[in-house]
């Protein structure tokens, strides 16, 4: 799998769909491809957010702590984009994501992500739209 496959994967994310391919390639290049063994955490609830992850291969569980112990609220797989809220708002992770199988993910660092937002208004607009939609969905 090479950089171009990662660019293709990024293109499939709604957030990045409007961005020109060259910039996506830069984003992919500036990011790191990381593999996690089953059981390893991509991140844990309550940790400071330092990166967002795009799942390229494998399946992961999204787990939230409740009064009754951990609850798996969702299962995510290929092309899932997680952890972007924590790096946008500087809030701790709202959930844990743990690899259920071996996972390969693209790790997009916070500084890289924010730098791209600063450079590309189209991406910032897309983020705003996404956030607005989520807000709409909750009200």
């Amino acid at each position: 799998m090479s950089l171009n496959d990662e660019v293709e994967a990024l293109k499939r994310i709604k957030l990045f769909s409007a961005i020109e391919p060259a910039k996506l390639k830069l984003l992919a290049f500036a990011s790191e491809r990381i593999s996690f063994e089953a059981g390893q955490s991509l991140f844990r609830e309550g940790d400071p957010g330092d990166a967002a992850y795009l799942v390229l291969e494998g399946v992961a569980d999204v787990v939230v702590q409740s009064s009754k112990g951990p609850i798996t609220v969702a299962e995510i797989g290929r092309d899932a984009f997680v952890g972007e809220i924590a790096i946008l708002c500087d809030v701790p992770r709202t959930a844990s994501v743990t690899a259920a199988s071996r996972i390969v993910a693209l790790r997009i660092r916070k500084d890289v992500f924010l730098q791209l937002l600063r450079d590309m208004t189209s991406m910032a607009l897309e983020i705003m739209r996404e956030l607005a939609e989520r807000l709409e969905a909750t009200t």
Partner: peptide, 17 residues
Amino acid sequence: IELFRGLPPDHPFFEQF
């Protein structure tokens, strides 16, 4: 050149990547 075209020379990406 394709990736970094249009970025100002002092852009942090140059140094990092």
